[in-house]
Design a protein around this nucleic acid. Structure first.
Lengths: 336, 336
DNA sequence: TTGAAAGCGCTAACAA
DNA sequence: TTGTTAGCGCTTTCAA
């Protein structure tokens, strides 16, 4: 393992001082009025020997790690993986490295993951929060590091939030089912903070029509088989339901499986899903879905983060950006 | 932003030397015969004030960053996201942070991402390679950092590889179609190094039966619409095909869409997909698939990496671990 | 059993 | 315009 050159090695080989070299390396050649020849000589040599400054040394010295920490609920969830990959691309272009860590929707894991990232001296945090993490986030905020919250947020915390209009989305989805003649609309969701607004949206519409709500709230840690089991139970004990609104992608998959296993009259149940999926279009019938603008979310999140990182004054005005969602109508919610 | 304590601050507050403190912090108290009382005093105080040693300082000093760099083809591909999340969990438990970077199957991006990770002083690399990256990998190997290759590998490079039996999987899938009466079996794949073994497996079986191969090799950068378009074209120009074997998940999705749009006799085409998917079970008919043992792959990869990281002698015997794959039979490949 | 101090690689204030 | 040097926070050798 050949030892890497340090800035001292290169400086002495070049017969310049480390300062000069450091300045040039950081593009401050002009600013510091280093002579053109020296700059050129340095750049040529650096390129030739492929010298690359050590990040750790630089970070230790500057106090900036050029790293952004991102917390997702679960990287296997297409929503999170798409947002993460969009963010990564832009972050890398801006010279930052993204560290993605999963909370698995567990409070303790989320806390430890935040600690991990903080110990790693990330320059900023991008967080999808869960219930109970308020205090940790408030503490983090006090430390003054840039922070962007996405997916859902705590109104009582003065953070910069980027979310979609979950409430309206859920409201519209429910309304859509209603307008297509469904009257006994069930809602299947997860016991997660991020789902609260969707529950509200659903309930609001149902109540506005003086219908009665019918909500199944599943523990988030349930696996696929568990979900299928619970949904099957729910459907059979509530066998007057004419339609179901699933509040996440994963639940929809489980629900579809449950419904297809039940068969019979259950096959006629109307379906809407929160979060679109490529396959929804392939299924027969196609699944009506609420689509989140993933690209916009990810680019807004990372651009805001980069802005915060740039601004000397890290105290950005707290703000909540709300993106609208789209209802993609397919056959699963068609009039019966 | 309250300034973080350094080891010096803590040492002076505790009235001990930094050496003593450092030893205790690194669990070398016993070994260095620090008195029990001092150890306890230190541990209690450290816990009380929540002091956490700065990673950067430590890394700079030890030369180990406790970071593992992982390169995936595309984090949105469920195969990669599942492997990555499995690896992350174990890595974190072992005190490592995982940085996942996407190559997007592009040579240049892969090179720059390897450079990025190397500049970041990752302690080890976990790489899903693509064609053309051989030399970069060979160079990296010379630097002596632990490295595990997964998904596919270069036989000519003496690396530690963890893959599935792509060739046999493809062979069995093709054979399965044949045994169910299909004779005109097409193969749709991507122009990617990782697909070569699958192509071989398919071709081997077809040729063993004196049938003729029919392969569509799509550019990997094609998007969903492009895939649908190309597959539609392929199916209509080869309209005697009675079945198709898709070599990745994403291609299958596109293929299903294409077939459902074509309708008519095309709806009867037999289908097998490489890589299983939750929804394959929900679709009607269910899609027969080759399932990779993702959990085993990820745990083997990370455990091997940790072993390499631990071993003083980094020159681990090159070896190729090959996992078998499972054929999950569903209705899409049933006898017609 | 503990302490002083050098050094990891880099930045930047200060001096020249 | 360039060089000297003191940190950044930690580990670890060597000395006491």
């Amino acid at each position: 393992m050949k030892k890497k050159k340090s800035i001292y090695d290169v400086a002495s080989e070049l017969q310049v001082s480390v300062t000069t070299l450091s300045f040039v390396l950081n593009g401050k050649g002009q600013e510091k009025r280093i002579s053109k020849e020296v700059i050129q000589k340095i750049e040529a040599y650096v390129k030739e020997v492929g010298y690359q400054p050590n990040h750790l040394g630089r970070s230790l010295s500057t106090g900036k790690s050029k790293t952004i920490g991102m917390i997702v609920g679960d990287i296997n969830n297409p929503f999170f993986s798409e947002v993460a990959s969009g963010i990564e691309k832009i972050a890398v272009k801006a010279g930052y490295t993204l560290i993605v860590a999963s909370s698995n929707n567990e409070l303790n894991q989320m806390k430890s993951v935040i600690k991990l990232l903080n110990d790693r001296n990330v320059d900023g945090f991008i967080i999808s929060p869960i219930a109970g993490i308020e205090e940790t986030i408030a503490d983090l905020k006090k430390e003054g590091k840039p922070m962007v919250i996405y997916n859902c947020f705590f109104p009582e915390l003065d953070t910069y939030n980027i979310v979609v209009d979950n409430k309206r989305g859920a409201y519209e989805a429910t309304k859509h089912l209603f307008e297509n003649g469904f009257r006994n609309i069930g809602f299947i969701t997860l016991d997660l903070y991020s789902q609260n607004e969707r529950i509200e949206g659903y309930s609001d519409f149902i109540e506005s029509q003086n219908l009665s709500t019918n909500i199944l709230k599943l523990p988030y840690e349930l696996n696929y088989e568990g979900i299928i089991h619970k949904i099957t139970q729910f459907l059979t004990t509530n066998d007057t339901l004419d339609s179901v609104f699933f509040s996440t992608n994963f639940l929809t998959l489980g629900g579809l499986k449950a419904i297809s296993k039940l068969g019979g009259k259950y096959a006629k149940i109307g379906i809407v899903s929160f979060d679109d999926h490529l396959l929804y279009d392939v299924l027969n019938p196609g699944i009506t879905a609420i689509k989140q603008p993933v690209k916009e979310i990810s680019s807004t999140v990372i651009n805001q983060m980069l802005t915060m990182l740039d601004s000397a004054d890290k105290t950005v005005e707290p703000k909540t950006v709300v993106f609208p969602v789209d209802l993609i109508v397919r056959a699963s919610s068609a009039k019966r």
